[in-house]
Computed example of a mutant assay.
Amino acid sequence: MIARRIKAGGQWLSLAGFCLSFAIILTFLLSYALFPIDAEFYQVRHLYPVTAGQLYHNYVELMAYLQLPWVNPLRLSDFPVSVSGATHFADVKKLFILTWVIFIISTPFAVRFLHQLKVRRQRYRLLWPAQIGLVVPVILAVIASINFDQFFIAFHQLFFRNQDWLFDPATDPIILVLPEEFFMHCFVLAFLLFETLMVLGIVHAKKSLKLGD
């Protein structure tokens, strides 16, 4: 009985880990398209003398460093990086890599679990967890929308134990071309992707109930 409960808990945990990491990783990938749009819209190049091509190249370099374990240390072609800035990006890299690890490990278990639910006609079991997964991010989104600046600060205080994330534009001008709105849009994108997964879970669960699965 205990072993069965542990197994069931592991299955749900793998599914939750997959949904969350999938939404975040897809946001990572979609940010390659989002960044140049925000950079152009908010005219960040007026804050630092680089061309649009150079700016995008440096963003790709930064993302490669954050997501690829073998890219080290951080070097940007057109932006200097201070010791504190490098320390913060190293901390961010750990979170990015952790997200990829969770995704890689959880995916086969989550896919197998979903397949089992389908074969056993038990997809209705997705309803309650998906409903919870749908509501909780909405609550967080409402809190964030009230004061994104404070939410952004609280987010960094939660995940980082030092103050290295408080960039000095004089020593780390990369912060000048990474507008707060860009981070906000990334949060919104990750939120929408995760909510989409929860809605799909609810739809399949209700369909299963109607079919009598």
Rank of each mutant, 00 (worst) to 15 (best):
D149C: 08
L193D: 08
N162K: 04
W70E: 12
D168Y: 01
P80M: 04
L166R: 14
K94G: 07
L68T: 13
A205M: 05
Y59K: 12
D168S: 06
A52R: 15
T51P: 01
W165L: 14
Q43D: 15
T99G: 00
L26V: 03
D149V: 13
V188A: 15
E40D: 13
F35I: 08
V111G: 06
A23I: 10
Q157F: 04
Y124W: 00
I25G: 01
V142R: 00
V60C: 14
L166D: 07
A23L: 10
L66E: 01
R161W: 12
H57W: 00
F41C: 07
Q122A: 01
D91C: 08
P179N: 08
I37A: 13
A8M: 11
R75C: 04
I132V: 15
I2D: 11
D149F: 13
D172L: 10
I174V: 13
T107F: 02
Y42L: 14
F113T: 11
Y48D: 10
Y32F: 15
G201K: 11
L158C: 04
F151P: 04
D38W: 10
I37R: 09
R121K: 15
F41Y: 09
G133E: 01
I104H: 07
L140M: 11
H204L: 12
L192C: 10
A3H: 04
Q54K: 13
L176R: 01
S106Y: 01
D213N: 15
V135W: 06
G212P: 03
L211N: 00
I2W: 11
L140D: 06
G9E: 05
R45A: 06
H185L: 13
V92P: 03
